[in-house]
Write a protein that binds this DNA or RNA. Structure first.
Lengths: 110, 110
DNA sequence: GTGGATTTTGATTTTGTCGTAATAATCAAT
DNA sequence: ATTGATTATTACGACAAAATCAAAATCCAC
């Protein structure tokens, strides 16, 4: 477990959001995905901070886009997964699947 | 998102471990599950602290067992999921499934 | 320069982490 | 059967990392 390679729960969700957005990922869109599809409504800053951390960890890369031309159309920073990011996502997924698998009859549920 | 209801990534794994252990969950077994099936080797104390936090959050309940009779066989504290814990687990699972679903063709992968 | 969108900064709370101390039980003498 | 060593389990105290947001800083068009 090398330092700085762990995926927090929000980091994972953000990575997932970037993934499904393809090359169209940016702060705003990621936040939208989170609140619309992941039951996680966080502030804008939370998203950015997480995105930066993900980039530092090597799970995402980013580049600067073009100004949009509209009023207040500052150039957005775009994000995409790195191969390492994809791997990390697949690893945690495999772990969870393993942990869920096998009977499951124990659940205390109505 | 009510306060103190979030599931951290380790908390989720611990909950999953308790779940698959049924009524036989205790600190040592949970730790074992984590390292054997979840690629997460943490210290004993980490497991206990997490278990306590989970109980405070209402996702797990615990009771004291009997001494084991063997050398050093102090009575263990046993854990099991509460219905809330099961729900929490199912909710995060559903979210992740939704986030993975649909095409997935964007992955930058070799 | 104003006004609107996006990103960064600073500060705080929650989670994750471990070393070590405290408990509790058995075993081996005495 | 008390005392001390040995082992397993749990609690405590400190600190690092992740999550979180409000507010400040940027950048762009008008």
């Amino acid at each position: 477990m090398p330092k700085g390679s762990h995926l927090g729960d929000l980091e994972e969700l953000v990575l997932l959001a970037v993934r499904r957005l393809g090359e169209e990922a940016d702060g705003g869109r990621v936040r939208e995905q989170l609140s619309e599809h992941a039951e996680r409504s966080v502030s804008v800053s939370t998203v950015y901070v997480t995105l930066m951390r993900l980039e530092e960890k090597g799970y995402a890369r980013s580049w600067k886009g073009e100004p949009s031309g509209t009023r207040g159309g500052k150039a957005k920073r775009h994000y995409a997964l790195t191969p390492e990011g994809v791997d990390a996502l697949e690893r945690v997924r495999a772990v969870r699947e393993r942990m869920w698998d096998r009977d499951g009859a124990h659940a205390t549920h109505g």
